[in-house]
Design a protein around this nucleic acid. Structure first.
Length: 494
RNA sequence: CGGGGUGUAGCGUAGCCUGGUAUCGCGCCACAUUUGGGAUGUGGAGGUCGUAGGUUCGAAUCCUGCCACCCCGACCA
């Protein structure tokens, strides 16, 4: 096991992040540009996220299905705005065969004879292939709604990538629903936004702002994009999930119509919504520290680790190990994800540091002294505190503490987020907040894309969202001084 | 994709300027002693020096192309 190379969060945030991802065994760079290998420990966390999300999707009536990786170019270009939005980051399959290279023995070349009649686009998102399919599925209002989700990989050929936050290939889920009415589709869009927000806050312990994107930031092909925005520990915002109201755009592009109860033909209303492995990045950046990862108990692959500290005497050693196994069994029976690390070639100190690096929420150390006294030493990862407690009712104690840690991590992140929302009323205050205070800046904006662009050029900050249920108040735009009816949230973002 | 930097064992590095087949630490394997915050000793294994060419009797070292990563921009979930 590698020694943790210390990189301080305060000194170089992005080096700290990269180092942490690699040292904690979450992921590593691969031989493919911009693509990562997600390692077992990292994937275990992703699987827990998937399980929680999948359960919520099913509870809200969705079913999983799977659509192809490839989208024929003619389908891809059907919805023009969507196609245009993604065009410059697409991987394209043009051939279907290799052959041996006559000039370079043992090497392969693309067989020019094997050119595809029509290029295939590796999906950057699946609206096109899915809506082309939905046309076959929908005839009457009785076929609606269609509530489908798929777990998939997509490819967006990014110029600059970062582990989990932006990779050329990433894993995600994309929900694609079809509805008979605009109201129903809008309700679905908002429902899924709530599902995401609930997941982010209660499972990931990351507070989020729910809001609406401006036209500039909207998903290509959507009439309205809702989002959840998180704030990372370096004061930059991260878009953690989006839910799009697609109107009838895709129905029109793919000619998907239905006959209503009144025997009237109309285009179908659509939504799509997704979250990706980027959430792993959000999780890491929201809670972790210089010692390594800090995981909320609800996503920790290991919630409690038991480290036996065996003495030199054989009989003592046996006693300690027996006790450790007893606690292990009791905790496991309670449904707690517990690991007993009885490797005898590692010192306790090494194990302590290693589980801290991996973000295991609780650590139980047990040695001869504790066995004799009926105690254990209990250490919390999030607060780095430890105490000797009685081992009586241990499963109960641990179970309660895990819950407390989950809340405590959330509250800490919430406090950080709330203390980093700065309300400003003029341009000097705006720039000062963006440059020096970091975080979200709540400011009046005149509502034009032009001003939004200008502010982005001047400050590198973008409008993250117009918060839902936003307070309506008269004010003037921080840049142009034109009238405004509400504040929006600006931030530098990932 | 533009500017700057880096690439030597699983990880971190020395050597490069001034060419002669590579240094040290951690980790790994064996044995022994250890175990309450990253153990110690002894012995051992591990290297196409990112990659492809070029210069040279000889290249980690000099030259060129390419690749990957990091930092700063532009683009984005």
């Amino acid at each position: 096991m590698a020694e943790f190379k210390k990189v301080k969060r305060s000194e170089n945030y992005s080096a700290w992040y990269n180092n942490l991802v690699e040292q904690a065994d979450l992921a590593q760079h691969s031989a493919v540009k911009g693509c990562m290998v997600i390692k077992p420990y990292g994937y275990a966390i992703w699987e827990k996220m998937q399980a929680e999300l999948d359960r919520r999707f099913k509870e809200t009536g969705h079913q999983n299905a799977y659509f192809p990786l490839f989208v024929p170019k003619s389908l891809f270009e059907a919805e023009e705005k969507n196609a245009e939005g993604f065009a410059k980051e697409c991987a394209i399959v043009t051939h279907y065969r290799l052959k041996t290279d006559p000039d370079r023995p043992g090497k392969l070349m693309v067989d020019p004879e094997a050119k595809l009649e029509e290029e295939l686009i590796v999906r950057p998102t699946s609206e096109a292939i899915i809506w082309n399919t939905y046309r076959d599925w929908i005839q009457s209002y009785r076929d609606l709604p269609i509530l489908i989700n798929q777990w998939a990989n997509v490819v967006r050929w990014e110029m600059r990538t970062r582990l989990f936050l932006r990779t050329a290939e990433f894993l995600w889920q994309e929900g694609h629903t079809a509805h008979a009415t605009k109201e129903e589709a809008l309700a679905e869009t908002k429902q899924m936004l709530e599902v995401y927000a609930d997941f982010a806050e209660n499972i990931m312990a990351v507070p989020v702002v729910k809001g609406v994107k401006t036209e500039n930031e909207r998903f290509a092909g959507a009439d309205e994009t809702f989002c959840i925005e998180g704030l990372m520990q370096d004061g930059k915002a991260l878009q953690m999930g989006t839910s799009h109201f697609l109107g009838q755009n895709f129905a029109k592009a793919f000619d998907v119509k239905f006959v209503s109860k009144e025997n009237v033909k109309d285009y179908v209303w659509a939504t799509s919504w997704g979250v990706s492995t980027r959430l792993m990045g959000a999780l890491i950046m929201s809670h972790s520290d210089d010692e390594g990862l800090v995981l909320p108990p609800k996503l920790a692959p290991i919630q409690v680790v038991i480290v036996p500290i065996t003495g030199k005497k054989e009989d003592e050693k046996a006693l300690v190990l027996d006790k450790a196994r007893e606690y292990f069994t009791a905790l496991k029976a309670k449904g707690i994800l517990v690991k007993l690390d009885d490797r005898d070639n590692m010192s306790p100190g090494y194990k302590f540091a290693d589980y801290e690096l991996k973000g295991v929420p609780l650590r139980i150390a047990i040695g001869p002294r504790d066995v004799a006294a009926g105690n254990v030493e209990l250490a919390r990862r999030d607060t780095k505190t430890k105490e000797i407690i009685s081992a009586e009712n241990l499963p109960e104690t641990i179970s309660n503490l895990l819950e407390e840690i989950q809340n405590s991590i959330y509250n800490k992140a919430l406090e950080y987020r709330n203390s980093h929302i700065h309300t400003v009323n003029n341009w000097d205050e705006f720039m000062d907040a963006i440059e020096n205070k970091t975080g979200f800046v709540s400011a009046h904006w005149d509502g034009t894309g032009e001003t939004e662009e200008k502010i982005k050029d001047l400050s590198k900050a973008t409008i993250r969202c117009v918060p839902l249920n936003n307070l309506q108040e008269d004010g003037v735009c921080v840049l142009t001084g034109k009238p405004s009816t509400q504040r929006v949230l600006f931030a530098k973002a990932y």
